[in-house]
Design a binder for these strands. Structure first.
Lengths: 149, 149
DNA sequence: AGTATTCATATCACCTTACTAGGGATTGAA
DNA sequence: TTCAATCCCTAGTAAGGTGATATGAATACT
C-alpha cells in the first residue's frame, strides 16, 4: 500500500524548486536530480507530469530549466501526488472497477462507507500540507531565522 | 494506491462470520465464499491468514468451518487489513527500504514528517472502526430493529 | 472405510514499478 | 552556427505483486 517513488521524487523536486526560488530563475533537470537524488532521466518524466498538471513551467533551450508555475502556498502535497500517480492516486478502495451497480448488499455498503471515510482521511492529510508549509519546515530545520512578522 | 482485493475479501469474510454468529457454530469456506462473492479457493488462503493472525479459528474435518476468535468489538478493520496485507500494510511512504541512515537532508526530513502524518491518519481511520461497528451498520441498513437499551 | 473439510504448497498469467538506454525534434543563448 | 538544454517517444528489463487455480495431505465426523 505504498505510494510509488515517483511521488517522493515529485515532492522532492517541487520542494527543491520552491527552495531555489530565485524569483524568475529556472533550475535544470540535472541539478534538481543531483540535489534530490533522483535518476536524471527518470526525473525528466516526473517533471513532465508536473508540467502537464500545471504545477511546473519550463523554459527550453540553453539556460532553460524549470520553475514552479504557482506560488508554493497554492500547491498542496496532494496535488503533486495526484499529478504523478494519476487521477485516482488517492483511491484506496480495493478492486480496480466501479462496484456492480445494483449489486450492493448491506455489507458491501458498510464497507464502502469504511473505504470512503479512509480515502477522505488520506486526502485531508495530503491536501492539508502546502509546499509553503514544507519550505517553512525545511528552513526551520536548517536553522534559518525567520524575519517575517 | 489501492489496497488489494484480499483486504476486501477479508473484511467481507470477517463481517460474514460476525453476522452468522450462531454462538459456537462454524461457517464453511464455501458458504462464506458464496455469500461474500469471493472465489472459494482464494478465500481459503485469505481466511488462513486471518487464522494465523488470531482473528479467526477453524475446525477441520467434516462439519468443520470457521468462526471469529474474538468478540467483534475487539477486532478492528485495521487488524483485518494488516492480517492479509502484511505487517506494513499501512505504510504508504514510498520506497521499500529504510532511508539511508545519515543521508537525511532537511527536505527529506520534512517529507518524512508528511508521510508519517499521513500514515497516522490512515491507521486512525481503519483502526477507528470495529467489526461490531460494521455489524451495527449492516443491521441498521437492513432495517433490523435494535432492541438493546 | 468413506466423505467432507481444512491446511499447505506450488504454479500461473498478467500487471506494475523503477529503472536504463537511445534517439530525434525543438528551442534559445552565445 | 553551434551548443545546451528541454521535450517526447520507444523499448527493454529485473523484480515483485495480484488474483487466482491445482494438487495433495491432514483431520474429523458418520
Amino acid at each position: 500500500m505504498r505510494f510509488s517513488l515517483k511521488s517522493e521524487y515529485a515532492l522532492r523536486a517541487a520542494l527543491d524548486l520552491a527552495l531555489q526560488a530565485s524569483p524568475s530563475g529556472v533550475a535544470r533537470t540535472s541539478d534538481v536530480a543531483r540535489r534530490t537524488g533522483a535518476p536524471a532521466k527518470f526525473l525528466e518524466a516526473v517533471i513532465g507530469q508536473l508540467r502537464r498538471a500545471g504545477i511546473v513551467e519550463s523554459e527550453r533551450g540553453a539556460r532553460g530549466g524549470h520553475r514552479l508555475a504557482l506560488p508554493p502556498s497554492r500547491i498542496r502535497a496532494g496535488d503533486v501526488v495526484r499529478a504523478v500517480e494519476g487521477p485516482d492516486a488517492l483511491s484506496i478502495r480495493p478492486g480496480r472497477q466501479r462496484p456492480p451497480p445494483g449489486a450492493a448488499g448491506a455489507s458491501t455498503r458498510a464497507l464502502h462507507h469504511l473505504w470512503t471515510g479512509t480515502e477522505r482521511a488520506l486526502a485531508a492529510s495530503l491536501d492539508g500540507v502546502s509546499l509553503e508549509d514544507l519550505v517553512r519546515r525545511v528552513q526551520e530545520a536548517s536553522g534559518v531565522p525567520d524575519f517575517s512578522i
